[in-house]
Design a protein around this nucleic acid. Structure first.
Lengths: 341, 341
DNA sequence: ATGAAAGCGCTAACAT
DNA sequence: ATGTTAGCGCTTTCAT
C-alpha cells in the first residue's frame, strides 16, 4: 500500500468523506458538486490511488472472497470445476481462494478453518471422505457452504452434482444392449453418494433386463487409477467370464486399460469398457473410450451461483438446494457386442 | 464473524491486549501467568473464537495472500502449476487466490489490479501476450511478481521456466538420430520466449548435423490444438517431403495427430512426432507420444518459493532471479526411422 | 454540499 | 504481569 484515501483528500483539498464518496460513485447521492468530484478523481489518478480492499473488507464486513476446496487440483475434473467457479466469481467482482486438500479430511478441515478465518463469504467444497459434520458446522456458524460433486444424503447444505443414477443406468444399458451380462464394476470411494448412486443406477439397469446385481462383481476403493488397475486385475482372474467393465471414473478406466493389456485382453474385442466421466483427448486414446460425460462446467457454474447467492444473503429461501445436472453419453469405440459361443 | 477478541477478553476477565498476547503465543514474552493464559484460551474455545484475518491483515499490513494468474486453469499444465504453488503456499500458512485470464491480456491486467488491491503479498503469473510493462509496473509499485512458464528476455522480474532451448534440441535430436531431415515445426505463440527459445534449440540441433533451418517448415500461432491442427494440415500439403513433426505443446501435438489421421498418414510409420511437454495418459494414446517433459511441479514450487521469499521481503538480493528447470525425454512410440528410398 | 468522528477487530507501543 | 490506547484505511452516520 502506498497511497491512502486521506492523501488523496488532502491533495484535492477536501475531507476524506468527500473523497470516499466521490470515488465510490456516491457523488450525486450526496450532492457533491461535479467540480469537486472530478478534482478528487484527478488527485486519485495522479497519486495512483488504489483503495485498500483489506480496510474496505473490515469496514464493510464483506471480503468479496469465495473459498474453493478440492481434493486434487491437478485432476482435470477438479481443475475444470475450479475454473468455472473462478470465472463466474470474477464476473461478479469476487476473487477465489483455492485450496487443495490432497484427498485428506485432515487437510480439508484445516484449510476450511483457514478460509473461514479469512471470512470468505461462501465456500464451495468438493469434500473428501464421507463425513459432513464439519461442513455443516461451518455453515451453521455463518459461512454458507455448497457442496459440489461429492454430496451427502440427508444433508441440508446446498449441493450440486451429476445425475449419477441415471447416468450410470445409461452407461450400463450401453453394455447390456450389446449383450453383456457379466459386467465388472470398478467403483470409486464406497460410501460417497456419487459412488452409491452409480451403483444403484447400475443395478437398476440390470434389473430392467432381468439380471440380478451380483456384488462380487464390484470392486475398488477409490476414484484413482491404482484402484481401477488393482480391481480390474483381480476381477479378471476371479471372474474370467466377465465381458465388460463399467469404470466409475476416468482414472479407474485407465487402470482397467492397463490391466487389460497386462492380461492380454483386447479392448474392445475381448473386453468392453464404459467409463463415467470424460477426459480431454479421450477420442485419441489407444482405445477411444465410450463415456458418460459429466457437465463439469455446469456443475461449477451452478455451484458458484449458489455460493454467490448465499453470500449476498438472498434470503429468498425458495432456491433449490439440490441440483443434479444431466450427463451425456459419448459413444466412441470401447464397446463391442458379446460373441455368443 | 461472530466472536471478537474483546468478548473473549471480557469473558476471561482480562484486557484485550492480554487476550491477544495469550492467543498469539506471546504469553511468556510478555510474562503472562500461565493461569491467565489458559483462562483466556478456554474462554476463546468456549466462544468458538476465530480471529479475524481481515482485521489482522489491516493491522499487520500482511495479508498472507499470494495471487496466481494463469491463462487457462483447465489446461493440465497450468492446473499443475497452480497446484504446486498452492501446496507450497499452504505449507507456509499462505492462501492463494487464483485467477484465470482466459488467454487475454485485457483480463490479465484487470485481474492483476484486483489482486493488487487485495494486497496480495506476491504474484506469480503465467503471462499471456508478449508485453511485460504492466507486470514491471506492479512490481515497481511494491508487489513482487514472479513469472512462470512464459518469461521475457531482458526483464528484471524473477522468472522460472523450462530449459526450452536445450529441451528443444533434445527433441530435435531424437528425430535427426532416426534420419529425419525435413522436420515440420508446429510452433506455439510467436514472440514468447518459450517459443523463440525452442525454435533456436531446434535450429541448433539441426546445425549440429549440418542441415540448415528452413523457416518455411515452421507454422503455427498458438499453443492450442487448433493451431497444431491447422499448421499440420497445411504443412502436410505444402511440404509432402516432411517426415516428422516437432510439436511445441501437447495440444499442438494432438492437433497434428488429428491432421495426420485426416491425411491418412500413419504415425509413427509414415510420420513421426515429438512433442514438447507431456500429459497424463500420454502412454495410453493411440500413438504413445514421445515427449520432452517439463517438470511442472518443480516450476510451480520454485515460483512459489521465489514469491514467498519476496513476500517476506528477504532483502538478500543475492537470490537467483532466473531459474531454468531441466526437461526430461520420455521415449514412447511416436518416432520411427526414416525409410531411405 | 461538505466535514468530523466513530468504529470495523486487531496488535503493539507505552504505561503502570 | 496486566491495562490503555493509538491506529491500520476505509465508510457512513450525523452534524452543519
Amino acid at each position: 500500500m502506498v497511497t491512502t484515501l486521506s492523501q488523496v483528500a488532502e491533495k484535492a483539498g477536501v475531507s476524506v468523506s468527500v473523497a470516499s464518496r466521490s470515488l465510490n460513485g456516491h457523488a450525486k447521492a450526496y450532492r457533491i458538486s461535479d467540480a469537486t468530484a472530478s478534482r478528487v478523481k484527478e488527485a486519485a489518478d495522479q497519486l495512483g490511488f488504489r483503495p485498500s480492499q483489506t480496510a474496505r473488507s473490515l469496514r464493510l464486513k464483506k471480503t468479496g472472497l469465495v473459498g474453493v476446496v478440492v481434493p486434487d487440483l491437478s485432476n482435470p475434473f477438479f481443475a475444470s470445476i475450479s475454473q468455472s467457479i473462478a470465472l463466474s466469481a470474477e464476473a461478479e467482482g469476487y476473487s477465489v481462494i483455492v485450496a487443495d486438500s490432497r484427498e485428506q479430511t485432515e487437510h480439508e478441515i484445516r484449510l476450511l478453518h483457514q478460509l473461514e478465518d479469512r471470512q470468505v463469504e461462501a465456500l464451495v467444497v468438493c469434500p473428501v471422505g464421507t463425513e459432513s459434520k464439519h461442513l455443516q458446522e461451518i455453515n451453521k456458524r455463518g459461512t454458507p457452504v455448497v457442496l459440489a460433486d461429492r454430496t451427502f444424503p440427508n444433508c441440508n447444505l446446498a449441493q450440486v452434482t451429476s445425475e449419477h443414477r441415471v447416468g450410470a443406468a445409461k452407461a450400463t444399458r450401453l453394455l447390456t444392449a450389446q449383450g453383456h451380462r457379466v459386467i465388472g464394476v470398478l467403483q470409486g470411494l464406497p460410501g460417497t453418494l456419487p459412488n452409491e448412486q452409480r451403483l444403484s443406477g447400475h443395478a437398476e439397469a440390470l434389473e430392467e433386463i432381468g439380471v440380478a446385481f451380483d456384488p462380487s462383481l464390484t470392486m475398488g476403493n477409490n476414484f484413482t487409477e491404482a484402484s481401477g488397475f488393482d480391481s480390474a486385475k483381480k476381477l479378471l482372474v476371479d471372474r474370467p467370464d466377465i465381458t465388460a467393465f463399467f469404470a466409475f471414473s476416468t482414472p479407474n478406466a485407465m487402470g482397467a486399460l492397463r490391466a487389460a493389456m497386462e492380461s492380454s485382453r483386447l479392448v474392445p474385442d475381448d473386453l468392453s469398457i464404459v467409463a463415467f466421466d470424460d477426459c480431454p483427448y479421450a477420442d485419441l486414446m489407444s482405445v477411444p473410450l465410450t463415456t458418460v460425460r459429466q457437465d463439469v462446467d455446469r456443475i461449477g457454474q451452478l455451484a458458484a451461483e449458489l455460493a454467490l447467492r448465499a453470500a449476498v444473503g438472498s434470503t429468498s429461501r425458495k432456491r433449490k438446494r439440490r441440483h443434479d445436472v444431466k450427463t451425456r453419453v459419448i459413444v466412441r469405440n470401447s464397446i463391442s457386442s458379446v460373441r455368443h459361443s
